[in-house]
C-alpha cells in the first residue's frame, strides 16, 4: 500500500512543480470521476460483503478439496467467478489447498476466474461498457479460464 501512495505522491509533486494549473485540473478530474463512480463501488461492496458471508474461505476450501477432479474444476470456476479476493488472500489460500492435495487444474480454474471473471464487479464494469459487452467479456473470460485449467491439468499429468 505505502508504495502506491509514495509513487502517486511523488508523481503529483513533480507534476505540481512543472505545472501548477494542470496539476490542479488533474486533481479536479480525479475527484469528479471518483464521485461519479463511488455509489457504484458502494453497491459492489454490499454485494461483496454478502457473497463473502455466504461463501467464506472455509466453505470454498471444503468444496474444492472433497469432490471429483472435474466437478471440482467446475465448482472452482463458479466460486472464482462469484467472489472477489485480492491476490494476497487468494494465493496463500491456494498454496494451502495445494498442500492438502487439491489438483493444480482446480486451483488454476479458481485463481484464473477469480482474476478475470467478475460477477461482483458487474455493476462497475457495466457503468463503463454497458450490460451487453460486460456479459460478453465475462463469458469469454470464463472460457479462457476453463481452457487454462484444462491445459494446466494436462501439463501436470492430472488428466491423462
Amino acid at each position: 500500500m505505502y508504495y502506491t501512495y509514495t509513487i502517486t505522491g511523488l508523481v503529483l509533486i513533480i507534476s505540481f512543480i512543472i505545472n501548477k494549473q494542470k496539476t490542479l485540473k488533474a486533481v479536479k478530474i480525479a475527484v469528479v470521476k471518483f464521485k461519479k463512480i463511488f455509489p457504484t463501488f458502494i453497491t459492489m461492496l454490499i454485494f461483496v460483503s454478502i457473497i463473502l458471508f455466504l461463501f467464506p474461505d472455509e466453505v470454498i476450501s471444503n468444496y474444492l478439496g472433497n469432490s471429483s477432479k472435474f466437478i471440482s474444476v467446475l465448482l472452482a470456476s463458479f466460486f472464482g467467478s462469484i467472489t472477489l479476493m485480492p491476490g494476497f488472500v487468494a494465493f496463500p489460500l491456494s498454496g494451502i489447498l495445494l498442500t492438502k492435495g487439491v489438483p493444480y487444474m482446480v486451483l488454476s480454474a479458481f485463481t484464473t476466474t477469480l482474476m478475470m471473471v467478475g460477477i461482483i464487479t458487474f455493476p462497475l464494469e457495466k457503468e463503463y461498457f454497458g450490460v451487453k459487452v460486460t456479459v460478453i467479456r465475462n463469458i469469454i473470460s470464463f472460457f479462457i479460464a476453463l481452457i487454462v485449467a484444462v491445459i494446466t491439468g494436462i501439463l501436470f499429468g492430472e488428466i491423462f
Binding site: 502506491t4 502517486t8 503529483l12 485540473k25 480525479a30 471518483f34 472477489l84 485480492p86
Partner: peptide, 28 residues
C-alpha cells in the same frame, strides 16, 4: 457482513484514491 464490508472498503481505499489521481494526471 459488517466486517466484510469494512475490510473491503479499507482495501479499496488503499488503492482507489491513488488510481484516480493517476488517471487525472494521465488525462491532463
Amino acid at each position: 457482513i459488517t466486517f466484510n464490508f469494512i475490510s473491503f472498503l479499507i482495501y479499496m481505499l488503499k488503492i482507489l484514491p491513488c488510481a484516480f489521481i493517476l488517471i487525472g494526471l494521465f488525462e491532463v
